[in-house]
């Protein structure tokens, strides 16, 4: 902090020097903050730019409609793209009811006992566990013990486990944003807990919950380690026909291509990365849009 300048004429202008000192610091700090945001943004743009340049020649219809191949020019991402889409749909199907359900229980029904405190501690801890451990758990539990094999369901169930802690946390945050007065008003009108939840609390926190869901799915879409651990494949030349099908996913295909010696495969990897990034951006965009829309419905 700056000290008052000795030469500045005393009392009359106290607020004056305060303000000037204030603005000078303010400007410096502001510049620092702008630099902090500009630096990663520039890096990101640089990265995305060079990626796009390398990827551009490969991003044709053929790339989306072909199976992988030993010839980089005719290789495509069809099974990986379909695998990723199905994986996301199934993961959402598994994790949303469990995650939102657990959040509702913890937030609306559970009494603050030692047990719930322990549960909460566990959930926060699990949120920080490295994803490969979920892969190992999935391999043992879903692939081996439950004998689901190296299938889509096993992959989706593993990713769902990975997402649950995050989903529960964001859903609880969203539930907490609904003012208590509203719940009390409902109870005063004679509604029970369930009716209150269904008619008032859930609709009000929906934007938050949905955003949380989509953002967690956008995180899951890039996960490679747990999928490789449970045995997702490097090469599949057919599309999944059932939940028990073997599968591959975009991050795995990318990983695969990046490690090839031939430079032509790196262009393929770049193109697949662009597709993956586009999917993530799309999901984040949808989250933003949904949030705006639903919020308008509630407030307006």
């Amino acid at each position: 902090m700056s000290t008052p300048h000795p030469s500045v004429a005393p009392p009359a202008d106290t607020e004056g020097w305060l303000r000037t000192g204030h603005t000078r610091n303010e400007a410096a700090f502001r510049a620092l903050c702008k630099l902090a945001i500009a630096l990663p943004l520039c890096l990101l743009l640089l990265l995305a730019g060079s990626l796009l340049v390398e990827a551009w020649p490969r991003l044709g219809v053929g790339f989306f409609a072909s199976y992988p191949s030993r010839f980089a020019e005719s290789a495509g991402i069809l099974p990986a793209l379909v695998g990723t889409a199905l994986l996301m749909a199934l993961t959402a199907l598994f994790s949303i009811p469990l995650g939102v359900g657990a959040a509702i229980y913890l937030e609306e029904y559970a009494r603050p006992t030692r047990f719930t405190a322990l549960l909460e501690l566990n959930i926060t801890t699990l949120a920080g566990v490295p994803s490969i451990l979920y892969g190992l758990l999935g391999l043992e539990l879903f692939v081996r013990v439950m004998d689901l094999g190296r299938s889509l369901v096993a992959g989706a169930a593993t990713l769902a486990l990975l997402l649950l802690p995050m989903l529960i946390t964001v859903s609880r945050e969203a539930l907490r944003t609904v003012p208590r007065e509203l719940r009390e008003a409902c109870f005063a009108l004679g509604a029970d807990r369930f009716a209150t939840l269904r008619r008032v609390v859930l609709p009000m926190c929906m934007p938050g919950v949905l955003t949380g869901i989509i953002l967690s799915l956008a995180r899951a879409i890039g996960e490679t380690a747990p999928l490789i651990t449970i045995g997702a494949l490097g090469y599949v030349a057919f599309l999944p026909t059932s939940l028990g099908s073997a599968f591959t996913a975009l991050p795995i295909q990318i990983f695969n291509w990046v490690s090839r010696p031939q430079a032509a495969f790196r262009a393929n990897a770049a193109a697949a990365i662009v597709v993956l990034l586009a999917l993530m951006l799309l999901m984040n965009g949808v989250a933003l849009w949904l949030r705006r829309r639903l919020q308008k419905r509630i407030t307006g």
Binding site: M146, L148, T241, S242, L243, G244
Partner: peptide, 13 residues
Amino acid sequence: VAGALALSACGKE
């Protein structure tokens, strides 16, 4: 889990 098992069982390749 039960549902997943049932589904995977009927989808023989």
